[in-house]
């Protein structure tokens, strides 16, 4: 596939200007050093996977990037602009959205309403007190398109809380997508999904690949190695390696620290 693409337009993520550049980021909770000295760059349009064992500090990093947790030290540049001072909602408006590992949706609102809220957030003021919202057809039209995109077109009227777990995960990603991000921070989008649902999620992310840069936190190694352009490995709060999937699979330190079971020593992390 890549062979057919001329060398000049071939994606070379490492060389394009990064959308996200993280320097020296740290966070501790009391005595727990959740992460330390994180250096990370996500290139334009790339899917950058972030893997690491439970408790490595992945969610903490996502929360720091999204502006929901204040880092102790370090700087975050998004599209060349320092964003540490921006509140979470301001970062979303700047084009940086996140999804949650633990599904966070409006459970008592319909699927369409969920998505319409996200559209409303970025289209015009919400300090509007007079005009009935149901006349605001534009936001519902966009919400319908989004429902289509994430595969929930036939579930629009369903209450979000009544959806199956897999569908809720689709909505979770849909809400982040609805903000029109240029960088998507995805915190374990496949969490708790069955094989079929995982395939659907992988297909959704693959379809977005090349349009939106992603930092993909994921335990599902199959998904990671199929989607990622590059992978960073976080162990005990520190990034121990960053590189292409092939390089990561071959990295001795990564194997020792993270993928270091007998099985992966033979065939790499893809064998699960």
């Amino acid at each position: 596939m890549t062979a057919a693409v001329p060398a000049m337009t071939a994606p070379v993520p490492a060389r394009t200007a990064p959308v996200l550049e993280v320097r020296g980021l740290s966070k501790h909770f009391g005595g727990v050093q959740a992460n330390a000295d994180i250096e990370l760059a996500v290139a334009a349009r790339e899917i950058h996977a972030l893997i690491g064992p439970n408790g490595a500090g992945k969610t903490t990093l996502v929360a720091q990037l999204a502006g929901m947790l204040a880092p102790d030290t370090g700087s975050i540049a998004f599209e060349g602009r320092q964003i540490q001072a921006l509140a979470a909602h301001q970062r979303v408006r700047a084009g940086l959205a996140r999804s949650f590992q633990i599904t966070s949706i409006f459970r008592r609102f319909s699927v369409l309403e969920n998505l319409a809220l996200a559209v409303q957030a970025r289209s015009g003021t919400s300090l509007s007190f007079w005009r009935p919202r149901h006349e605001d057809t534009a936001i519902f039209e966009e919400a319908r398109e989004l429902a289509q995109d994430v595969g929930l077109a036939d579930r629009e009227e369903e209450l979000a809380g009544a959806l199956a777990h897999g569908e809720q995960r689709q909505l979770e990603v849909g809400l982040a997508l609805a903000t029109c991000p240029r960088l998507l921070l995805l915190d374990e989008p496949m969490a708790g999904l069955g094989p079929e649902e995982s395939e659907r999620m992988i297909a959704l992310l693959a379809a977005l690949k090349g349009q939106i840069a992603m930092l993909l936190v994921e335990h599902d190694m199959d998904a990671v190695f199929r989607l990622a352009d590059r992978i960073s490995v976080l162990v005990a709060g520190r990034i121990i390696a960053t590189g292409t999937p092939q390089a990561i699979r071959a990295d001795a330190a990564v194997r020792a620290a993270y993928l270091g079971d007998a099985e992966s020593a033979q065939s790499g992390p893809r064998s699960r």
Binding site: A66, M68, A87, A88, H89, V92, R93, A97, R98, F100, S104, I105, F106, R107, R108, F109, L117, A118, A121, R122, L175, A176, A178, T179
Partner: peptide, 10 residues
Amino acid sequence: ENETRMEAIG
């Protein structure tokens, strides 16, 4: 309903 999510959608 969900203030954190509201922040996360901007």
